[in-house]
Design a binder for these strands. Structure first.
Lengths: 187, 187
DNA sequence: GACGATGTGTAGCAGTTGCTACAGATAAGT
DNA sequence: ACTTATCTGTAGCAACTGCTACACATCGTC
């Protein structure tokens, strides 16, 4: 294993970019290695295992999404907080992170490891960042924790829709509906 | 190709059962064939292609879910309609159908065919059945069409949660919240 | 300068994948 | 009985998978 993981660290970012673009499900080491200008042999030497590499990529992607939410300035109220959060999730830069999350979740659906654990952990950090943004926007912490389940579930569904369905207008209204509905719940 | 698809038809059901249990993503013809008491050779002969087989399975699974929704008796109001629909989606018999749908959607996320088209078509029929149930429960058709986007998105998200997270109580409240919120939107 | 540790390239293994060539079976139609 | 179309089993192909054995390079240390 690498002495200090220097190369490993240097590869994690580009590897994540590659996976975000090409998807996780059919991921193969050789094309990825080629894109990074190296060989599968080297990837395995520095990451140890394909699963370890995937874990690093998933964590990196999750970190990016969480950082994006954390960099959000507080929203004036609950309704706009939901809209602001969606604007992050739907952002062309971070939507692939959600997509990757969905892929990993699908892989973990039947308990397949390491995906199930990875996704569960990633989900925890992601939900926590949503809760934090809601509280920073003036929402009660217990209420935020409660609403975040619905919000996140709807976001995932919207993201799936977005990728498979062209009709963005329907979804736009659905997002607004969600924001209204959640705001109603919070009052 | 088969003269009248008799064997193909006879295999579609069991094959769907197998895929619902073992998942779509890692699906391989040889184990499936073994479970059906035949060989991959025969599956390909009668279905033509693995993609064709998957298409048949996906359609069958979708048909089952749609049939379950259609067999639902009308709900007294919008709120209970949402809860009743969820009780179908979360049913131990039909939850695997949703799970399979998520797997197919994940496979189609990057436009990979035939998954993207199949999922898009399946989604259309599924959404239509949800709309029908809402209208049969006294909801305005335009309103039903509008709300169904949010409802379905949240359902998908819940289903992902359900598979990856043990905590059923949180989700139970989230479902109730969703029902409340949607009911509020409809009034 | 010898030596061990760390890194890298080549080549290949064993397993799996969807799919197919080939030969034989079966049965229906003439 | 002979042909023709439908069906099925065996065996295998070519491509790909994650991963590894082996040889070579490089480098800091004694």
């Amino acid at each position: 294993m690498a002495k200090d993981g220097e190369r490993r660290e240097a590869w994690t970012g580009p590897a994540t970019d590659y996976v975000l673009e090409h998807g996780l499900i059919g991921l193969s080491l050789r094309p990825l290695a080629k894109a990074l200008g190296t060989s599968d042999r080297m990837l395995l030497y520095h990451f140890g295992t394909k699963d370890d590499l995937v874990a690093a990529v998933l964590t990196e992607s999750n970190d990016r999404a969480v950082a994006a939410v954390e960099s959000l300035s507080p929203s004036p109220d609950l309704r706009s907080a939901v809209l602001d959060l969606w604007s992050v999730a739907d952002n062309s830069q971070f939507a692939p992170c959600t997509r990757l999350y969905v892929e990993a979740a699908a892989l973990g659906l039947l308990g397949r490891e390491p995906y199930a654990s990875l996704v569960s952990e990633a989900n925890g950090r992601w939900l926590a960042s949503l809760v934090t943004h809601l509280t920073r926007s003036g929402v009660d912490r217990p209420l935020a924790r409660r609403l975040v389940t619905v919000i996140d579930a709807a976001f995932l569904g919207f993201q799936l829709d977005a990728a498979l369905d062209a009709s963005g207008t329907t979804r736009k209204r659905a997002v607004a509906d969600l924001a209204d509905a959640v705001a109603e719940l919070g009052s």
